[in-house]
Design a protein around this nucleic acid. Structure first.
Length: 547
RNA sequence: GCGCCCGUAGCUCAGCUGGAUAGAGCGCCGGACUUCGAAUCCGUAGGUCGCAGGUUCGAAUCCUGCCGGGCGCGCCA
């Protein structure tokens, strides 16, 4: 926002004027004021510099205000409260902002501070043992939104899905399918201990029966595994596609085994004397890197634990040249994060470049009771089912309506029953309503002019000022969402923007008898629709023309 | 026992890297459609920000200790 940059320079000059060297100026805030009496913008800088100057914050604020007053675009500045500096701008800044939004269109709210930075964003990463659950849904939506936000800030984002299709769990999957296969043919078969009980296993068994016939035996388990994996992955991809999520890379853990990357990591760790043998297993000396315990990397059976491929995988991310790596993980993984990071440090890689975004669990609540989710026990509601019930837009909006670090109670009945009252419709309705207004304007022959040639100084109603100021904050919201990896800020912002618009709508008419005023208001509401679209696109939610 | 997350209105949750009088949705109550979409709007009520200290101009926010809930702490992934 050009205005803010200008204000920042003025305040900066003011501080230097008070005798502070340019390099000693602390980072300070300049924000859109929340209350009208506090002007258009406010800064807290006086609090920060007062001690060093031997002044009270109030005195420092007062001097800054005197300096800033009259310097374009500041019409007037005043010290307030304990030491705030409130900046009152020439009213034209509001018009300028509307023109900016009108001109930038889809680009309004975008940044380029991420330009030149490549990001590997890993999320979902669910192994192909069953359909995606509601829990995966939260992660999928969270990760995808984050990807969009980072891209809007200029980052070059690669979306990656990491999975493992070997090992005990997949073997169990194959045995489960094989058992159902026999049962489908009316034969007796003992279901494996701890096997996958979901109905989808039976479906897969039937499919195999239909395509390959009934002659398969337990000697064909590898075949069952492959077919099951393929079927489940088809299902996972189709669910993701419904959410508009398309991964750039599906990274298979096996490739790390096959290409010898695991051995390389082991050798490197051994070379640094960071491994040792004990009880027939190979241990990683995580304690040497400041962690609480050492961890097994190769079991007594000769198989690696999950930790080894995890470290090797991250090493590959570095080798592939990414500047930043973001792992979106469920809270149940947080305990192992320190050990993976320790492994990264052990390999002399900069662990600071890995950011882990942990999200708390989704607890399903049905009829007031909590349901424990387990893929194996088939005690889950699939993401597909949830989408069927509530719709994709509502699912996404709902998942992003709370910060990742907070638990999410998902009441199934509530979501179904109140789907019409989901906040997503509130935001979408504002957009549809504006579309409707614009259609109406077209029907009655309003000449729609670009913001640059409309007389925006006619937008003087308090509700118009509030609306414009709120739109002015959008770029900051986007930036902050990217910096903190917190997509939930977007839907909250949009709900407020929609509220300000609905309020404005009820108090003022856009299409009036006055041609110039109508033109200006049409430009204004078009901008509101644009910002709504720009925000909704960051969370993958549609902006309907009508609903 | 140790680590991480959470505790804000009856319920579900925001609170912008410490800022001015703590907000929204749902629910309750009372109003607003002959005019651009009432899936909307306006108003009322509702708070010891879990508790107790500390840091400072200022704390829901940062630190410490408790209380309560969730999740981790494997030669499982």
């Amino acid at each position: 926002m050009a205005v803010k940059t200008a204000l920042r320079e003025i305040v900066f000059d003011a501080i230097c004027q008070l005798g502070i060297a340019a390099e000693d100026v602390p980072p300070f805030d300049i924000d859109v004021s929340r209350v009208e009496e506090h002007g258009d913008f406010t800064t807290n800088v006086a609090f920060l510099i007062a001690p060093g100057l031997g002044l009270t914050p109030r005195e420092a604020a007062s001097r800054i205000a005197t300096f800033a007053t009259g310097r374009n675009p500041v019409a007037r500045a005043e010290a307030a409260g304990a030491g705030f500096v409130n900046l009152f701008l020439d009213r034209s800044w509001l018009s300028e902002l509307v023109k900016t939004i009108d001109r930038e269109g889809e680009g309004y709210g975008a940044w380029d501070f991420g330009r030149g930075t490549t990001v590997l964003l890993e999320y979902v990463s669910s192994n192909p043992t069953g359909p995606l659950t509601v829990g995966h849904g939260r992660q999928a939506v969270l990760g995808e939104s984050l990807a969009c936000i980072l891209e809007r800030c200029g980052y070059d984002v690669t979306r990656e899905y990491y999975f493992n299709n070997m090992g005990a769990q997949m073997r169990l999957l194959a045995e489960s399918v094989y058992c159902r296969y026999r049962q489908v043919m009316g034969e007796e078969a003992v279901f494996p201990e701890g096997g996958y009980e979901g109905e989808y296993i039976v479906d897969i068994a039937r499919e195999i029966r239909g395509q390959r016939g009934g002659h398969l035996t337990d000697g064909d388990l590898e075949l069952f595994k492959r077919d099951a994996e393929a079927a489940i992955f088809r299902n996972i991809r189709s669910t993701l596609a419904r959410l508009g999520i398309v991964f750039d890379v599906f990274y298979n853990e096996n490739s790390l085994h096959d290409s010898g990357k695991l051995t390389e990591v082991l050798n490197e760790l051994a070379g640094k004397d960071l491994t040792y043998e004990k009880d027939g297993a190979l241990w990683f000396k995580a304690t040497d890197l400041g962690e609480e315990n050492d961890r097994v990397v190769v079991k007594g059976t000769g198989e690696p634990t999950y930790l080894l491929p995890d470290i090797a995988y991250h090493r590959e991310k570095y080798n592939r040249g990414f500047s930043t790596m973001i792992d979106v993980l469920g809270a149940d993984h947080h305990g192992q994060v320190p050990y993976v990071l320790a492994g990264i440090r052990a390999l002399d890689l900069d662990a600071e470049r890995v950011k882990v975004l942990l999200h708390q669990f989704v607890t399903l609540v049905s009829e007031g009771k909590r349901i424990r989710m387990s893929t194996r026990k088939a005690a889950f509601v699939t993401l597909d089912e949830l989408i069927d019930e509530v719709g994709v837009d509502a699912v996404k909006f709902f998942f992003l309506l709370r910060k990742a670090s907070a638990h999410l109670d998902f009441d199934i009945e509530l979501a179904k029953r109140e789907s019409d009252e989901n906040p997503v419709y509130y935001v979408q309705y504002a957009h549809a309503r504006i579309s409707s207004i614009l259609q109406h304007a077209g029907r009655v022959g309003v000449e729609v002019v670009p913001g640059s040639s409309a007389d925006l100084s006619l937008l003087t109603e308090p509700e118009e000022t509030i609306l414009i100021k709120w739109m002015a904050r959008f770029p900051d919201i986007v930036r902050r969402s990217a910096e903190t990896l917190e997509p939930h800020r977007i839907p909250f912002y949009l709900m407020d923007l929609a509220a300000h618009f609905h309020n404005y709508y009820h108090r003022h008419r856009v299409v009036t008898d006055e041609a110039l005023l109508t033109q200006a208001r049409v430009v204004l509401v078009k901008c509101v629709a644009q910002v709504l679209r720009n925000g909704l696109s960051l969370i993958g939610v549609s902006a309907p023309e009508s609903m």
